[in-house]
Design a protein around this nucleic acid. Sequence first.
RNA 1: GCCUGAGUAGCUCAGUGGCAGAGCACUCGUUUCAUAAGCGAGAGUGCGUGAGUUCAAUCCUCACCUCAGGCACCA
Length: 489
Amino acid sequence: MKKVFISTAIDYVNGAPHIGHALEKIQADVLARYHRTMGDEVFFLSGTDENSLKNVQSAEKAGISTKELVEENFQKFYAMKKALNLSFDDFIRTTEERHFIGAQKLWQACEKDIYKKKYSGLYCVGCEEFYKKEELTEDGLCPEHQTKPELVEEENYFFKLTKYAEKIKKAIESDELKIIPESRKNEFLSFINSGLQDFCISRSAERAKGWGIDVPGDPSQKIWVWFDALANYITALGFGSKEESKFQEFWQSEATKLHAIGKGVTRFHVIYWPAMLLSAGLKLPTAIFSHGYLTVDGQKMSKSIGNVIDPFSLVEKYGTDAVRYFLLREIPALGDGDFTFEKFEKRYNSDLASGLGNLFARTLAMVEKSGLGQDFEVSPNEYTQKEVETVKKDYRNNFINLNETLAEIWKLISASDKYIEEEKPWTLTNEKEQKEIFSNLLYVLKNIAEMLSPFLPETAEKILFGLNEKNGIYNPKKGEPLFPRIEND
RNA sequence: GCCUGAGUAGCUCAGUGGCAGAGCACUCGUUUCAUAAGCGAGAGUGCGUGAGUUCAAUCCUCACCUCAGGCACCA
């Protein structure tokens, strides 16, 4: 049995989740469910990143404690699990003790590559942030406060990234660390070739306002959030704790280890994270699945434009599987995509209501009306079996391109509708002929449901429940429409 | 500014050195097993711009334009 570790990015809890967050979780969920259906043993992880300084700032703005803010927003992110039917095996918050312990252990494991260095930069007291010259206004002022930033010098810990450049490059080149999509691979190879520099992995506790994880042995410094955040993937598995069996099983083994992340943070996952792991003498992830971003009506989602789409209200209005379907089918798995209600409803009506839902309904209705629907023994003909096998093959080979895989499944739906039209089974009186046609249709529906189960788990279950099959014997019963049509006036 | 990728029907995209494709949307026809769903037909003439290579370019080369991404401490 293959072991598979799949993670989502851990979200930054200074606000509520939007549909872009939902996209990534759903994609990762599909991959996790897919591997389970293939018989693999899966550990699927998600979580929240709670140690960022930004949380401290957001809490101050909101006039509540950082802890309160983080707790409130964690709840909102965690709620996606139920709303979107996500099958996480574990959910880690970086403020949990197990994470603190593990992150500090990881730091210690990297200690030979960590050194202190003075760092100076332009610091805006108002923002409590360092700015680069380019980020300032033309007059060299803070863009937020229009004040002149101070030149601040701080001693921080740095990590010897340079030491691992070659090894990382080789891992990427050889696909030992596979970057999906391939197009990003070259981007990072050229990034490495342009020369890496050591990076800063701590900030002063004062600047962090006491929020975050202490640097082991130096409480005047906090671990930089990225070093801390990346560690979640292994601290959740018990790294650094007394009970490391999951860590051994799913990380330090030949297990597939895949991180699903947004394209904007790919660098941290293909360069910094591997370097940290190499330094600590640990295994590297095997694949980075770097998805694109969502726009709404062609525009970037932003609070000021007011076009942020809330996944919860979408689910409430259209249902979990409809939301999952739209995001998985309309948005290229590895590219950017656009959300509009118009597109959503179009997809819903044409693919789900008129396509899948209608095919299911008409098939069961026909079988029911024919009177053949009891203890129906299904034996599909060769042509049908072959057709299904062809789709299944593509399904397995190209699964990662989730939107294309769905399109492939839909070809079976369309073919079935054509088949029904050609055969017109309701006009037949010959029972044998009818039986053959229904046999083929029920068989296709069952396979569609099985292939669909990672994508639309509830719908797949409903279809299988309706087909009511045991050992090739079906007792179908028609239920409520899977996806009632959306009527707009 | 530099690097990479992309620019094809209303929309989303596939594709090939030799008469330009699919799905959705649209129009017409048709059917009733079905969620006013299905099926068939049709219209759409479009390969970013300019030049070059070639018997022949949407596909190759060059330049340009537009867009997206990357160019280190941003979850």
